[in-house]
């Protein structure tokens, strides 16, 4: 006779299948997407490399529900004694988001679970390994995202206004304190408001986050994006101010696609430049930010290979009271996307 736990498992499985049926009929087949990458970096003479797998799963249930998640598995290899000795690896895994979205109305979506902390633009939009043009995250990334970049709780989001000339987006969230493995998060709340002008492809937005445990403090951020029509120029920037530091990054890239098209040898090349500065207001141990005022210039050169493969290379010069350094990065990433099953034609 099956135990009560087995019966409960069967009921849950049956419920899962019943919920999945509408998705099957609607041909909204669940997807597995994500990226595979090999990252190599030499920072101040210390070399390390990381093979990474970052899968994304999205499963729709009917017209209003979506379960989506992204994980990160990586092995971090570095020399035993920094610059000498044999390489040794350490395995890291993380759940970056695992959330249930309920699309309640055309302009409102409820999200519950673990989600990417919506502070600034980098974390939500550019942190997947197959998207950023430079391998390293901006120096100010931990401001507002509290180093892990993920929150456990609830979130409301949507497009308040969606007109051809202007869009206004909003996000509000509340996160609870959690120490569970893979689901660590802090008690916090925050919001983000974006004003986007599609005619100019200009976006201006603000972010706010309040840390609600221990010493309560605020983080504020402003971002500006400009991606002009008819040009492969892309300009992105952010400013953030936290309890112990403030700073900005400004990135400009230009893919040479206007010479012979995006699929030509030349058109696949994308040079870019990023300037960033961080200013320390006070010591903040363990906050993930540089321990002293830092200026850094990043010179990148990316190559977009066919079949979703990309090579990113960059040289960075860091100027800091803690010591100047050269940083050389090179990464190879592959982005994949396919249905979980074949589905109906």
């Amino acid at each position: 006779m099956p135990s009560s736990s087995h019966l409960r498992s069967r009921k849950i499985f049956t419920l899962f299948l019943l919920l999945a049926c509408p998705a099957l009929m609607a041909q909204d087949v669940p997807i597995i997407s994500g990226g595979i990458g090999f990252l190599n970096s030499t920072n101040a003479g210390v070399n390390f490399f990381q093979p990474v797998l970052a899968p994304v799963v999205a499963i729709p249930f009917g017209k209003h529900l979506l379960v989506e998640s992204r994980f990160d598995f990586r092995e971090f290899y570095s020399r035993k004694d920094g610059r000498s000795g044999p390489y040794q690896g350490t395995f890291f895994k993380s759940t970056q988001y695992l959330q249930l979205d309920y699309i309640a109305t055309p302009k409102l979506t409820f999200t519950v679970g673990r989600f990417l902390t919506p502070f600034g633009t980098y974390n939500e939009r550019l942190s997947a390994i197959w998207i950023p043009k430079l391998q390293d995250a901006p120096l100010i990334f931990p401001i507002g995202t509290r180093t892990t970049g993920s929150s456990d709780g609830v979130m409301l989001r949507g497009a308040l206004i969606s007109q051809p000339k202007m869009q206004v987006h909003y996000i509000g969230y509340f996160s609870v304190l959690s120490g569970a493995d893979q689901f660590q998060s802090a008690r916090a709340a925050g919001d983000r408001i974006d004003f986007y002008f599609p005619g100019k492809r200009i976006e201006i937005g603000t972010s706010y986050g309040r840390f609600l445990q221990g010493t309560h403090n605020n983080s504020i951020g402003v971002h500006f994006w400009w991606l002009p029509w008819q040009s492969p120029l892309q300009v992105r920037s952010e400013y953030a101010h936290g309890e112990h530091a403030q700073g900005y990054w400004l990135e400009a890239s230009y893919r040479l696609s206007q010479w012979r098209g995006p699929d030509s040898i030349l058109g696949r090349i994308e040079p870019l430049f990023r300037m960033q500065q961080v200013f320390r207001n006070s010591p903040g141990s363990g906050d993930g930010l540089p321990s002293a005022d830092t200026q850094q210039a990043d010179f990148g050169l990316d190559y977009h290979l066919p079949h979703e493969v990309r090579v990113n290379t960059s040289y960075s010069r860091k100027f800091s009271a803690d010591g100047n350094a050269n940083i050389w990065d090179m990464s190879l990433t592959y982005r994949f996307l396919f249905p979980v099953w074949r589905g109906h034609k």
């Binding site: 997807i31 979506l66 497009a159 969606s162 249905p339």
Partner: peptide
């Protein structure tokens, strides 16, 4: 693939804050 277009769009609707229209 046309089989996954709906799923991709719903995923991106949430992430990119797209309206229903």
């Amino acid at each position: 693939s046309p089989r996954i277009t709906g799923t991709v769009l719903r995923h991106m609707r949430v992430r990119a804050l797209l309206s229903a229209e």
